[in-house]
Design a binder for these strands. Sequence first.
RNA 1: GGUCGCGUGGCCGAGCGGUUAGGCAGGGCUCUGCAAAAGCUCGUACAGCGGUUCAAAUCCGCUCGCGACCUCCA
Length: 496
Amino acid sequence: MKNKDLYIYNSLSRKKEKFEPLNPPFVGLYVCGPTVYSPPHLGNVRTFLSFDIVNRYLLYLGYKVRYVRNITDVGHITNSEGEDIDRIGEQAKKENLEPMEIVQKYTLDFHEVTHIFNMLPPDIEPTATGHVVEQIEMVQRIIDNGYAYVKNYSVYFDIPKFVKDHSYGELSGQNIEEQLEGHRELDAQNEKQDARDFAIWKYADKTHPMRWNSPWGEGVPGWHLECSVMSTKYLGQKFDIHGGGMDLKFPHHECEIAQSIGADGSAPVRYWMHGNMLTMNGQKMSKSLGNSVLPRELITGDHDLLEQGYSPMSIRFFMLQAHYTSTLDLSNEALKAAEKGYKRLMEALKTLENLDLREAKSLSDADQKVNDSIDMAFAELNDDFNTPKALARLFELVTVINSYKDKREEYAGVSKATMERLQKDFRDLVIDILGLQEETAGEDGTMDGLMQLIIDIRQNARTNKDWTTSDLIRDKLNELELQLKDGKDGTTWTKL
RNA sequence: GGUCGCGUGGCCGAGCGGUUAGGCAGGGCUCUGCAAAAGCUCGUACAGCGGUUCAAAUCCGCUCGCGACCUCCA
Protein backbone atom coordinates (compact mmCIF):
# COMPACT_ATOMS: atom_id res chain seq x y z
CA MET A 1 0.00 0.00 0.00
CA LYS A 2 1.55 3.25 -1.08
CA ASN A 3 1.72 6.06 1.36
CA LYS A 4 0.08 9.03 -0.31
CA ASP A 5 0.70 11.35 2.58
CA LEU A 6 2.40 13.86 0.32
CA TYR A 7 3.24 17.37 1.42
CA ILE A 8 4.08 20.12 -1.01
CA TYR A 9 5.58 23.51 -0.30
CA ASN A 10 3.06 25.96 -1.66
CA SER A 11 4.71 29.21 -2.71
CA LEU A 12 1.43 31.01 -2.25
CA SER A 13 0.96 30.17 1.42
CA ARG A 14 4.69 29.77 2.02
CA LYS A 15 3.96 26.60 3.90
CA LYS A 16 4.12 22.91 3.33
CA GLU A 17 0.59 21.72 2.74
CA LYS A 18 -0.87 18.27 2.51
CA PHE A 19 -1.53 17.49 -1.12
CA GLU A 20 -5.16 16.71 -1.77
CA PRO A 21 -6.04 16.59 -5.46
CA LEU A 22 -9.19 18.39 -6.49
CA ASN A 23 -10.57 15.35 -8.29
CA PRO A 24 -8.67 12.25 -7.23
CA PRO A 25 -7.30 10.12 -8.72
CA PHE A 26 -6.74 12.82 -11.33
CA VAL A 27 -4.04 15.43 -10.90
CA GLY A 28 -3.54 18.45 -13.10
CA LEU A 29 0.05 19.63 -13.41
CA TYR A 30 1.03 22.67 -15.44
CA VAL A 31 4.59 23.81 -15.94
CA CYS A 32 5.74 26.90 -17.80
CA GLY A 33 7.79 25.70 -20.72
CA PRO A 34 10.55 27.41 -22.65
CA THR A 35 10.49 30.19 -25.19
CA VAL A 36 11.98 28.50 -28.19
CA TYR A 37 14.40 30.99 -29.67
CA SER A 38 17.70 29.45 -28.53
CA PRO A 39 18.96 26.15 -27.17
CA PRO A 40 17.97 25.47 -23.58
CA HIS A 41 20.74 25.92 -21.05
CA LEU A 42 21.40 23.91 -17.94
CA GLY A 43 19.33 26.14 -15.72
CA ASN A 44 16.29 25.36 -17.83
CA VAL A 45 17.14 21.70 -17.55
CA ARG A 46 17.15 21.87 -13.77
CA THR A 47 13.65 23.33 -13.58
CA PHE A 48 12.16 20.80 -15.96
CA LEU A 49 13.97 18.05 -14.14
CA SER A 50 12.46 19.16 -10.84
CA PHE A 51 9.00 18.84 -12.29
CA ASP A 52 9.86 15.60 -13.98
CA ILE A 53 10.34 14.26 -10.46
CA VAL A 54 7.00 15.69 -9.39
CA ASN A 55 5.33 14.08 -12.37
CA ARG A 56 7.07 10.75 -11.86
CA TYR A 57 6.36 10.57 -8.17
CA LEU A 58 2.69 11.43 -8.57
CA LEU A 59 2.45 8.73 -11.20
CA TYR A 60 4.19 6.30 -8.91
CA LEU A 61 1.70 7.07 -6.18
CA GLY A 62 -0.99 5.98 -8.60
CA TYR A 63 -2.43 9.32 -9.61
CA LYS A 64 -3.70 9.84 -13.12
CA VAL A 65 -1.59 12.85 -13.90
CA ARG A 66 -2.29 15.16 -16.79
CA TYR A 67 0.99 16.95 -17.27
CA VAL A 68 0.77 20.05 -19.44
CA ARG A 69 3.86 21.99 -20.43
CA ASN A 70 3.63 24.72 -22.98
CA ILE A 71 5.92 25.86 -25.73
CA THR A 72 6.15 29.61 -26.04
CA ASP A 73 6.51 30.12 -29.74
CA VAL A 74 5.46 33.74 -29.94
CA GLY A 75 8.23 36.28 -29.68
CA HIS A 76 6.71 38.60 -27.15
CA ILE A 77 7.29 42.22 -27.65
CA THR A 78 8.72 43.91 -24.65
CA ASN A 79 8.10 47.53 -24.23
CA SER A 80 10.21 48.41 -21.24
CA GLU A 81 13.04 50.82 -21.68
CA GLY A 82 11.56 51.93 -24.96
CA GLU A 83 12.67 48.73 -26.61
CA ASP A 84 10.69 46.60 -28.97
CA ILE A 85 12.34 43.24 -28.94
CA ASP A 86 10.74 40.17 -30.35
CA ARG A 87 13.26 37.48 -29.49
CA ILE A 88 12.07 34.93 -31.97
CA GLY A 89 11.93 37.53 -34.72
CA GLU A 90 15.39 38.77 -33.81
CA GLN A 91 16.80 35.28 -33.89
CA ALA A 92 15.12 34.65 -37.22
CA LYS A 93 16.86 37.66 -38.70
CA LYS A 94 20.15 36.58 -37.20
CA GLU A 95 19.90 33.09 -38.63
CA ASN A 96 18.22 34.26 -41.79
CA LEU A 97 15.21 32.02 -41.25
CA GLU A 98 11.47 32.32 -40.90
CA PRO A 99 10.31 32.77 -37.29
CA MET A 100 8.50 29.48 -37.49
CA GLU A 101 11.71 27.82 -38.60
CA ILE A 102 13.37 29.14 -35.47
CA VAL A 103 10.49 27.83 -33.41
CA GLN A 104 10.70 24.43 -35.01
CA LYS A 105 14.45 24.20 -34.72
CA TYR A 106 14.60 25.02 -31.03
CA THR A 107 11.53 23.02 -30.16
CA LEU A 108 13.23 19.97 -31.59
CA ASP A 109 16.38 20.90 -29.74
CA PHE A 110 14.46 21.21 -26.50
CA HIS A 111 12.82 17.85 -26.98
CA GLU A 112 16.17 16.26 -27.62
CA VAL A 113 17.58 17.68 -24.41
CA THR A 114 14.66 16.53 -22.29
CA HIS A 115 15.06 13.12 -23.84
CA ILE A 116 18.79 12.97 -23.16
CA PHE A 117 18.11 13.66 -19.51
CA ASN A 118 15.43 11.02 -19.44
CA MET A 119 12.51 13.28 -18.67
CA LEU A 120 9.04 11.94 -19.32
CA PRO A 121 7.26 13.96 -21.99
CA PRO A 122 4.23 15.99 -20.96
CA ASP A 123 0.81 14.64 -21.85
CA ILE A 124 -0.11 17.83 -23.63
CA GLU A 125 2.39 20.30 -25.03
CA PRO A 126 0.33 23.22 -26.26
CA THR A 127 1.78 26.12 -28.20
CA ALA A 128 0.94 29.77 -27.83
CA THR A 129 0.43 30.17 -31.56
CA GLY A 130 -2.09 27.35 -31.49
CA HIS A 131 -4.22 29.17 -28.94
CA VAL A 132 -4.42 32.71 -30.22
CA VAL A 133 -8.18 32.51 -30.59
CA GLU A 134 -8.61 31.54 -26.96
CA GLN A 135 -6.24 34.27 -25.91
CA ILE A 136 -8.20 36.87 -27.82
CA GLU A 137 -11.35 35.62 -26.13
CA MET A 138 -9.75 35.95 -22.74
CA VAL A 139 -8.62 39.49 -23.47
CA GLN A 140 -12.18 40.29 -24.43
CA ARG A 141 -13.52 38.86 -21.18
CA ILE A 142 -11.09 40.96 -19.20
CA ILE A 143 -12.12 44.07 -21.11
CA ASP A 144 -15.78 43.21 -20.59
CA ASN A 145 -15.18 42.94 -16.88
CA GLY A 146 -13.59 46.36 -16.88
CA TYR A 147 -10.05 45.33 -15.96
CA ALA A 148 -8.36 46.29 -19.19
CA TYR A 149 -8.23 49.23 -21.55
CA VAL A 150 -7.36 49.65 -25.21
CA LYS A 151 -4.67 52.08 -26.24
CA ASN A 152 -3.31 52.49 -29.76
CA TYR A 153 -4.37 48.97 -30.86
CA SER A 154 -2.87 47.40 -27.74
CA VAL A 155 -4.70 46.19 -24.65
CA TYR A 156 -3.39 46.66 -21.12
CA PHE A 157 -4.40 45.08 -17.88
CA ASP A 158 -5.54 47.80 -15.50
CA ILE A 159 -3.82 47.12 -12.19
CA PRO A 160 -5.15 50.14 -10.22
CA LYS A 161 -8.66 49.20 -11.23
CA PHE A 162 -8.07 45.56 -10.40
CA VAL A 163 -6.72 46.18 -6.92
CA LYS A 164 -9.88 48.01 -5.99
CA ASP A 165 -11.75 44.72 -6.14
CA HIS A 166 -9.03 42.10 -5.65
CA SER A 167 -5.65 41.63 -4.14
CA TYR A 168 -2.54 41.61 -6.29
CA GLY A 169 0.99 40.67 -5.38
CA GLU A 170 0.16 37.96 -2.88
CA LEU A 171 2.28 35.27 -4.51
CA SER A 172 5.45 37.31 -4.79
CA GLY A 173 4.91 39.38 -1.67
CA GLN A 174 4.95 42.54 -3.67
CA ASN A 175 3.46 45.54 -1.99
CA ILE A 176 1.41 47.20 -4.63
CA GLU A 177 2.09 50.73 -3.42
CA GLU A 178 5.78 50.31 -2.89
CA GLN A 179 6.13 48.55 -6.15
CA LEU A 180 5.15 51.74 -7.86
CA GLU A 181 7.86 53.69 -6.07
CA GLY A 182 10.47 51.26 -7.18
CA HIS A 183 9.43 51.60 -10.77
CA ARG A 184 11.14 53.83 -13.20
CA GLU A 185 9.17 56.75 -14.51
CA LEU A 186 6.92 56.13 -17.42
CA ASP A 187 8.53 57.60 -20.46
CA ALA A 188 6.63 59.74 -22.88
CA GLN A 189 5.93 57.16 -25.53
CA ASN A 190 4.73 54.59 -23.03
CA GLU A 191 1.06 53.98 -23.49
CA LYS A 192 0.42 52.47 -20.09
CA GLN A 193 -1.68 54.46 -17.68
CA ASP A 194 0.22 53.02 -14.78
CA ALA A 195 3.68 51.54 -14.63
CA ARG A 196 2.32 48.36 -13.10
CA ASP A 197 -0.10 47.68 -15.93
CA PHE A 198 0.95 44.99 -18.36
CA ALA A 199 0.10 44.20 -21.96
CA ILE A 200 -2.35 41.42 -22.66
CA TRP A 201 -2.46 42.23 -26.35
CA LYS A 202 0.27 44.12 -28.10
CA TYR A 203 0.08 45.90 -31.40
CA ALA A 204 2.58 44.68 -33.98
CA ASP A 205 3.32 46.50 -37.18
CA LYS A 206 4.33 45.16 -40.56
CA THR A 207 7.96 44.69 -39.49
CA HIS A 208 6.86 41.78 -37.31
CA PRO A 209 6.29 38.73 -39.45
CA MET A 210 4.45 37.00 -36.66
CA ARG A 211 1.15 38.71 -35.93
CA TRP A 212 -2.56 38.01 -35.80
CA ASN A 213 -5.74 39.84 -36.47
CA SER A 214 -7.85 40.81 -33.50
CA PRO A 215 -10.71 43.11 -32.58
CA TRP A 216 -8.05 45.67 -31.65
CA GLY A 217 -5.93 45.41 -34.74
CA GLU A 218 -2.98 43.29 -35.74
CA GLY A 219 -0.73 42.17 -32.98
CA VAL A 220 0.47 39.44 -30.64
CA PRO A 221 -0.95 38.15 -27.36
CA GLY A 222 0.72 39.18 -24.11
CA TRP A 223 3.22 36.76 -22.67
CA HIS A 224 1.41 36.03 -19.43
CA LEU A 225 -1.81 35.26 -21.20
CA GLU A 226 -0.87 32.03 -22.90
CA CYS A 227 -0.27 30.15 -19.67
CA SER A 228 -3.56 31.33 -18.23
CA VAL A 229 -5.40 30.20 -21.31
CA MET A 230 -3.70 26.89 -21.89
CA SER A 231 -3.58 25.73 -18.29
CA THR A 232 -7.28 26.25 -17.70
CA LYS A 233 -8.26 24.97 -21.12
CA TYR A 234 -6.72 21.59 -20.47
CA LEU A 235 -6.85 21.33 -16.71
CA GLY A 236 -10.01 23.23 -15.83
CA GLN A 237 -10.89 26.57 -14.32
CA LYS A 238 -9.29 25.39 -11.12
CA PHE A 239 -6.47 22.88 -11.10
CA ASP A 240 -3.95 21.33 -8.77
CA ILE A 241 -0.34 22.26 -9.42
CA HIS A 242 1.32 25.03 -11.36
CA GLY A 243 5.09 25.06 -11.51
CA GLY A 244 7.89 27.05 -12.99
CA GLY A 245 11.20 28.65 -12.23
CA MET A 246 11.54 31.01 -9.31
CA ASP A 247 12.23 33.86 -11.69
CA LEU A 248 8.75 33.54 -13.12
CA LYS A 249 7.06 34.23 -9.81
CA PHE A 250 6.98 37.89 -10.58
CA PRO A 251 5.64 39.21 -12.75
CA HIS A 252 4.66 36.21 -14.85
CA HIS A 253 2.76 34.09 -12.34
CA GLU A 254 1.38 37.07 -10.49
CA CYS A 255 -0.07 38.32 -13.75
CA GLU A 256 -1.52 34.92 -14.54
CA ILE A 257 -3.45 35.00 -11.31
CA ALA A 258 -4.71 38.53 -11.93
CA GLN A 259 -5.78 37.69 -15.47
CA SER A 260 -7.74 34.64 -14.48
CA ILE A 261 -9.52 36.53 -11.76
CA GLY A 262 -10.04 39.44 -14.11
CA ALA A 263 -11.49 37.23 -16.82
CA ASP A 264 -13.29 34.50 -14.93
CA GLY A 265 -13.48 35.62 -11.35
CA SER A 266 -11.33 33.01 -9.71
CA ALA A 267 -7.70 32.15 -9.10
CA PRO A 268 -6.93 28.93 -10.95
CA VAL A 269 -4.06 27.33 -9.04
CA ARG A 270 -4.23 25.41 -5.79
CA TYR A 271 -0.53 24.63 -5.29
CA TRP A 272 2.15 26.90 -6.70
CA MET A 273 5.59 25.34 -6.93
CA HIS A 274 8.78 27.18 -7.80
CA GLY A 275 12.11 25.61 -8.62
CA ASN A 276 15.18 27.49 -7.58
CA MET A 277 17.99 28.64 -9.79
CA LEU A 278 21.10 26.87 -10.94
CA THR A 279 24.07 29.10 -10.32
CA MET A 280 27.54 29.18 -11.75
CA ASN A 281 30.21 30.72 -9.58
CA GLY A 282 27.50 31.89 -7.23
CA GLN A 283 25.51 33.72 -9.85
CA LYS A 284 22.30 32.78 -11.53
CA MET A 285 22.90 31.07 -14.81
CA SER A 286 21.24 33.07 -17.52
CA LYS A 287 21.62 33.86 -21.12
CA SER A 288 21.72 37.57 -20.53
CA LEU A 289 24.52 37.27 -17.96
CA GLY A 290 26.53 35.21 -20.38
CA ASN A 291 27.39 32.54 -17.81
CA SER A 292 25.21 29.84 -19.17
CA VAL A 293 26.38 26.36 -20.00
CA LEU A 294 24.61 24.34 -22.61
CA PRO A 295 23.79 20.71 -21.91
CA ARG A 296 25.89 19.64 -24.85
CA GLU A 297 28.89 21.58 -23.55
CA LEU A 298 28.60 19.94 -20.17
CA ILE A 299 28.31 16.50 -21.69
CA THR A 300 31.29 16.92 -23.99
CA GLY A 301 33.26 19.10 -21.60
CA ASP A 302 33.74 21.64 -24.35
CA HIS A 303 33.62 24.78 -22.21
CA ASP A 304 36.28 27.02 -20.72
CA LEU A 305 35.15 26.45 -17.18
CA LEU A 306 34.88 22.68 -17.44
CA GLU A 307 37.69 20.23 -16.89
CA GLN A 308 35.92 17.29 -18.46
CA GLY A 309 32.61 16.09 -19.79
CA TYR A 310 29.92 14.54 -17.64
CA SER A 311 27.32 12.03 -18.66
CA PRO A 312 23.64 13.09 -18.69
CA MET A 313 22.82 10.75 -15.83
CA SER A 314 25.68 12.05 -13.72
CA ILE A 315 24.28 15.51 -14.25
CA ARG A 316 20.81 14.33 -13.38
CA PHE A 317 22.14 12.72 -10.22
CA PHE A 318 24.02 15.91 -9.39
CA MET A 319 20.83 17.93 -9.58
CA LEU A 320 18.87 15.42 -7.53
CA GLN A 321 21.38 15.77 -4.72
CA ALA A 322 20.01 19.22 -3.98
CA HIS A 323 16.45 20.07 -3.04
CA TYR A 324 14.55 21.79 -5.83
CA THR A 325 13.83 24.85 -3.68
CA SER A 326 17.51 25.53 -3.01
CA THR A 327 19.95 27.16 -5.35
CA LEU A 328 22.52 24.78 -6.70
CA ASP A 329 26.00 25.77 -7.73
CA LEU A 330 27.69 24.10 -10.64
CA SER A 331 31.35 23.20 -10.20
CA ASN A 332 33.78 20.62 -11.47
CA GLU A 333 34.39 19.12 -8.06
CA ALA A 334 30.71 18.71 -7.30
CA LEU A 335 30.07 17.21 -10.70
CA LYS A 336 32.89 14.73 -10.31
CA ALA A 337 31.60 13.68 -6.93
CA ALA A 338 28.17 13.19 -8.44
CA GLU A 339 29.55 11.12 -11.27
CA LYS A 340 31.12 8.67 -8.83
CA GLY A 341 28.09 8.57 -6.61
CA TYR A 342 25.85 7.87 -9.57
CA LYS A 343 28.00 4.98 -10.71
CA ARG A 344 28.12 3.47 -7.26
CA LEU A 345 24.35 3.63 -7.01
CA MET A 346 23.85 1.99 -10.39
CA GLU A 347 26.41 -0.70 -9.62
CA ALA A 348 24.52 -1.54 -6.48
CA LEU A 349 21.32 -1.83 -8.48
CA LYS A 350 22.98 -4.28 -10.82
CA THR A 351 24.40 -6.25 -7.93
CA LEU A 352 21.02 -6.39 -6.28
CA GLU A 353 19.29 -7.70 -9.36
CA ASN A 354 21.81 -10.47 -9.74
CA LEU A 355 21.43 -11.75 -6.21
CA ASP A 356 19.70 -15.09 -5.85
CA LEU A 357 16.75 -15.04 -3.58
CA ARG A 358 17.04 -17.52 -0.81
CA GLU A 359 15.39 -18.20 2.45
CA ALA A 360 17.30 -16.74 5.34
CA LYS A 361 17.80 -18.48 8.59
CA SER A 362 15.88 -16.03 10.66
CA LEU A 363 14.50 -12.55 10.74
CA SER A 364 16.78 -10.13 12.39
CA ASP A 365 17.66 -6.50 12.93
CA ALA A 366 19.00 -6.44 9.41
CA ASP A 367 15.52 -7.12 8.13
CA GLN A 368 14.19 -4.21 10.07
CA LYS A 369 17.02 -1.99 8.94
CA VAL A 370 16.38 -2.63 5.27
CA ASN A 371 12.68 -2.04 5.61
CA ASP A 372 13.27 1.14 7.56
CA SER A 373 15.56 2.58 4.94
CA ILE A 374 13.06 1.83 2.20
CA ASP A 375 10.19 3.30 4.19
CA MET A 376 12.23 6.38 4.96
CA ALA A 377 13.18 6.90 1.32
CA PHE A 378 9.51 7.12 0.45
CA ALA A 379 8.80 9.29 3.47
CA GLU A 380 11.43 11.75 2.27
CA LEU A 381 9.82 11.96 -1.14
CA ASN A 382 6.50 12.56 0.53
CA ASP A 383 8.11 15.50 2.26
CA ASP A 384 8.05 17.91 -0.66
CA PHE A 385 9.96 15.65 -3.02
CA ASN A 386 13.13 15.61 -0.94
CA THR A 387 15.37 13.82 -3.41
CA PRO A 388 18.66 14.48 -1.57
CA LYS A 389 17.34 12.78 1.54
CA ALA A 390 15.82 9.96 -0.46
CA LEU A 391 19.22 9.44 -2.06
CA ALA A 392 20.84 9.36 1.35
CA ARG A 393 18.50 6.50 2.27
CA LEU A 394 19.30 4.72 -0.95
CA PHE A 395 22.98 4.88 -0.12
CA GLU A 396 22.29 3.25 3.21
CA LEU A 397 20.87 0.43 1.16
CA VAL A 398 23.83 0.48 -1.21
CA THR A 399 26.07 -0.41 1.69
CA VAL A 400 23.76 -3.22 2.66
CA ILE A 401 23.53 -4.52 -0.89
CA ASN A 402 27.29 -4.44 -1.37
CA SER A 403 27.78 -6.38 1.81
CA TYR A 404 25.72 -9.16 0.25
CA LYS A 405 27.81 -9.19 -2.86
CA ASP A 406 30.65 -11.30 -1.63
CA LYS A 407 28.15 -13.36 0.33
CA ARG A 408 30.22 -12.46 3.31
CA GLU A 409 27.18 -12.02 5.44
CA GLU A 410 24.91 -14.58 3.82
CA TYR A 411 22.42 -11.76 3.31
CA ALA A 412 22.77 -11.11 6.99
CA GLY A 413 19.62 -12.93 7.86
CA VAL A 414 17.40 -10.85 5.63
CA SER A 415 14.24 -12.73 4.79
CA LYS A 416 13.23 -13.63 1.28
CA ALA A 417 10.24 -11.31 1.50
CA THR A 418 12.45 -8.39 2.45
CA MET A 419 14.87 -9.17 -0.33
CA GLU A 420 12.05 -9.22 -2.82
CA ARG A 421 10.79 -5.93 -1.55
CA LEU A 422 14.27 -4.47 -1.68
CA GLN A 423 14.74 -5.57 -5.25
CA LYS A 424 11.45 -4.09 -6.32
CA ASP A 425 11.45 -0.84 -4.37
CA PHE A 426 15.10 -0.02 -4.95
CA ARG A 427 14.51 -0.32 -8.65
CA ASP A 428 11.29 1.68 -8.50
CA LEU A 429 13.06 4.46 -6.63
CA VAL A 430 16.14 4.65 -8.81
CA ILE A 431 14.67 3.96 -12.22
CA ASP A 432 11.02 5.00 -12.11
CA ILE A 433 10.94 7.81 -9.58
CA LEU A 434 14.38 9.40 -9.77
CA GLY A 435 14.50 8.58 -13.45
CA LEU A 436 18.11 7.44 -13.47
CA GLN A 437 18.97 4.95 -16.15
CA GLU A 438 21.81 2.67 -17.09
CA GLU A 439 24.37 4.31 -19.29
CA THR A 440 26.58 1.36 -20.06
CA ALA A 441 27.37 1.61 -23.71
CA GLY A 442 24.07 0.00 -24.58
CA GLU A 443 25.43 -2.12 -27.39
CA ASP A 444 24.28 -5.54 -28.46
CA GLY A 445 25.54 -8.56 -26.58
CA THR A 446 28.91 -8.53 -28.35
CA MET A 447 30.61 -6.40 -25.75
CA ASP A 448 29.47 -8.58 -22.87
CA GLY A 449 30.57 -11.69 -24.69
CA LEU A 450 33.99 -10.28 -25.51
CA MET A 451 34.55 -9.13 -22.00
CA GLN A 452 33.57 -12.48 -20.58
CA LEU A 453 36.06 -14.13 -22.91
CA ILE A 454 38.83 -11.79 -21.82
CA ILE A 455 37.96 -12.30 -18.18
CA ASP A 456 38.12 -16.08 -18.65
CA ILE A 457 41.51 -15.91 -20.34
CA ARG A 458 42.82 -13.72 -17.57
CA GLN A 459 41.44 -16.07 -14.96
CA ASN A 460 43.41 -18.89 -16.56
CA ALA A 461 46.55 -16.83 -16.36
CA ARG A 462 45.84 -16.07 -12.74
CA THR A 463 45.28 -19.69 -11.92
CA ASN A 464 48.71 -20.36 -13.42
CA LYS A 465 50.12 -17.44 -11.43
CA ASP A 466 51.02 -15.76 -14.68
CA TRP A 467 50.78 -12.28 -13.17
CA THR A 468 52.47 -10.64 -16.13
CA THR A 469 49.68 -11.66 -18.45
CA SER A 470 46.86 -11.02 -16.00
CA ASP A 471 48.16 -7.57 -15.13
CA LEU A 472 48.76 -6.73 -18.76
CA ILE A 473 45.13 -7.52 -19.55
CA ARG A 474 43.92 -5.50 -16.61
CA ASP A 475 46.09 -2.49 -17.36
CA LYS A 476 45.37 -2.41 -21.06
CA LEU A 477 41.67 -2.61 -20.39
CA ASN A 478 42.06 0.22 -17.94
CA GLU A 479 43.58 2.34 -20.68
CA LEU A 480 40.42 1.64 -22.67
CA GLU A 481 38.45 2.86 -19.65
CA LEU A 482 37.22 -0.60 -18.79
CA GLN A 483 37.66 -1.61 -15.20
CA LEU A 484 37.90 -5.15 -13.91
CA LYS A 485 36.72 -5.88 -10.43
CA ASP A 486 37.90 -9.05 -8.78
CA GLY A 487 35.38 -10.28 -6.27
CA LYS A 488 34.89 -13.43 -4.26
CA ASP A 489 32.61 -14.81 -6.94
CA GLY A 490 34.77 -13.99 -9.88
CA THR A 491 35.42 -10.91 -11.91
CA THR A 492 33.02 -8.29 -13.21
CA TRP A 493 33.67 -5.24 -15.33
CA THR A 494 32.41 -1.72 -15.81
CA LYS A 495 33.00 1.15 -18.13
CA LEU A 496 34.75 4.02 -16.40
C1' G B 1 14.92 51.71 -2.12
C1' G B 2 11.11 47.43 -1.70
C1' U B 3 10.16 41.85 -1.43
C1' C B 4 12.34 37.13 -0.50
C1' G B 5 16.19 33.84 0.52
C1' C B 6 21.10 32.10 1.80
C1' G B 7 25.94 31.70 4.75
C1' U B 8 27.01 24.00 7.54
C1' G B 9 33.41 20.05 8.10
C1' G B 10 38.65 19.90 2.13
C1' C B 11 34.33 20.20 -1.84
C1' C B 12 28.93 19.53 -2.92
C1' G B 13 24.73 19.31 0.00
C1' A B 14 20.54 17.65 3.76
C1' G B 15 18.81 19.13 8.44
C1' C B 16 14.82 23.89 10.74
C1' G B 17 14.91 22.82 19.10
C1' G B 18 17.52 17.32 21.99
C1' U B 19 19.11 11.54 18.16
C1' U B 20 24.74 9.15 12.43
C1' A B 21 22.21 12.94 6.89
C1' G B 22 24.28 11.39 2.31
C1' G B 23 27.84 11.77 -1.86
C1' C B 24 33.00 12.91 -3.12
C1' A B 25 37.92 13.60 -1.20
C1' G B 26 41.48 12.21 3.06
C1' G B 27 43.44 8.60 7.33
C1' G B 28 43.39 3.43 9.38
C1' C B 29 41.98 -1.76 8.98
C1' U B 30 39.90 -6.30 6.33
C1' C B 31 39.76 -8.87 1.75
C1' U B 32 43.34 -9.50 -2.54
C1' G B 33 49.26 -12.52 -5.82
C1' C B 34 49.53 -7.03 -6.30
C1' A B 35 46.09 -3.33 -7.31
C1' A B 36 41.24 -1.78 -8.08
C1' A B 37 36.40 -2.67 -6.37
C1' A B 38 33.87 -3.81 -1.91
C1' G B 39 33.23 -4.00 3.56
C1' C B 40 34.43 -2.02 8.43
C1' U B 41 36.24 2.35 10.75
C1' C B 42 38.16 7.63 11.92
C1' G B 43 38.42 12.83 11.72
C1' U B 44 37.31 18.05 11.12
C1' A B 45 31.02 21.80 11.12
C1' C B 46 27.25 24.90 11.63
C1' A B 47 29.55 33.49 9.31
C1' G B 48 30.12 36.77 13.93
C1' C B 49 28.04 38.83 18.48
C1' G B 50 24.12 38.89 21.95
C1' G B 51 19.33 36.79 23.76
C1' U B 52 15.25 32.93 24.76
C1' U B 53 15.54 27.71 26.61
C1' C B 54 17.13 22.40 30.98
C1' A B 55 18.82 22.12 25.71
C1' A B 56 20.04 26.03 19.39
C1' A B 57 23.17 24.78 13.27
C1' U B 58 17.81 24.82 14.17
C1' C B 59 13.82 30.24 17.61
C1' C B 60 14.57 35.98 18.37
C1' G B 61 17.68 40.53 17.69
C1' C B 62 21.87 42.94 15.71
C1' U B 63 26.35 42.91 12.57
C1' C B 64 29.09 41.22 8.37
C1' G B 65 29.08 38.71 3.60
C1' C B 66 26.35 36.64 -0.72
C1' G B 67 22.31 35.89 -4.02
C1' A B 68 17.29 36.12 -6.45
C1' C B 69 13.07 39.09 -7.86
C1' C B 70 11.13 44.18 -8.53
C1' U B 71 12.84 44.63 -16.60
C1' C B 72 13.01 39.36 -21.07
C1' C B 73 14.62 35.01 -18.29
C1' A B 74 13.55 28.12 -15.81
